[in-house]
């Protein structure tokens, strides 16, 4: 069975036409929905990669009016050939999930709650804390008198969720700041 991107298959005869309401009697939904077409009709197809294990299955995201409406395995990627496991198959609700964080949050010392903040506010505040820490604790030479340019009191953990380009920048940023406590999922 040949599949193209959307996983079309050969249908015999003129089967590609949708069922008409006549064929299906006077039924309402879900039959009506078939006549109205697929939820992905007219959707833009965008290629992405599953964010879980390193098989890196390819996924086709179906986008309508800027909204994700469906996602399926990419049949052309020679490794997964359209298939997905439970996690990969859940990409639609994983992305559109209302439980997700939508705004930068801040928890003040000793506070019992999160408060919403603007990006400008949190970036300013974080930059300030980074600089304060670096200025306080930067170690130029160690006990042996060796030049070490190090900031032992600060760290970066994560993340393999990041893209290659993001990892490269994180590493560079930490080198610049003198951070050597750097670790992530690769050591778990």
């Amino acid at each position: 069975m040949h599949c193209n991107r959307r996983g079309f298959m050969k249908l015999s005869g003129a089967a590609l036409t949708c069922l008409s309401l006549g064929q299906l009697g006077n039924a309402l939904t879900p039959v009506k929905a078939y006549a109205a077409g697929l939820k992905i009709d007219g959707a833009k197809e965008v290629l992405t990669v599953c964010p879980f294990c390193s098989v890196s299955c390819h996924i086709v995201a179906y986008v309508k009016n800027g909204k994700l409406v469906s996602s399926e395995g990419d049949p052309d990627y020679p490794i997964n050939q359209g298939a997905l496991c439970a996690k990969g198959a859940a990409m639609l609700t994983m992305t559109t999930n209302e439980h997700r964080l939508h705004k930068p949050l801040y928890r003040a010392p000793y506070s019992e709650q999160w408060e919403e903040k603007s990006w400008d506010w949190v970036i300013e505040r974080i930059a300030r804390r980074v600089k304060e820490t670096r200025d306080k604790d930067f170690l130029e030479t160690n006990a042996k008198g060796h030049r070490v340019n190090r900031l032992d009191s600060m760290f970066l953990l994560g993340t393999s969720h990041a893209d290659n380009e993001e990892c490269a920048l994180f590493h560079q940023a930490m080198k610049g700041l003198g951070v050597v406590h750097m670790d992530h999922q690769a050591r778990i």
């Binding site: 965008v46 990669v49 390193s54 098989v55 890196s56 964080l101 999160w114």
Partner: peptide, 29 residues
């Protein structure tokens, strides 16, 4: 500080699979 991060489908960039294949993904939304 808790910064909301974009999901894989919401950004573009590359990842590398276990077989060392360098794979680009596109921002869908």
């Amino acid at each position: 500080f808790l910064l909301p991060s974009a999901h894989r489908l919401e950004k573009e960039g590359s990842v590398t699979n276990s077989g060392r294949w360098h794979l680009w993904h596109y921002a869908a939304v």
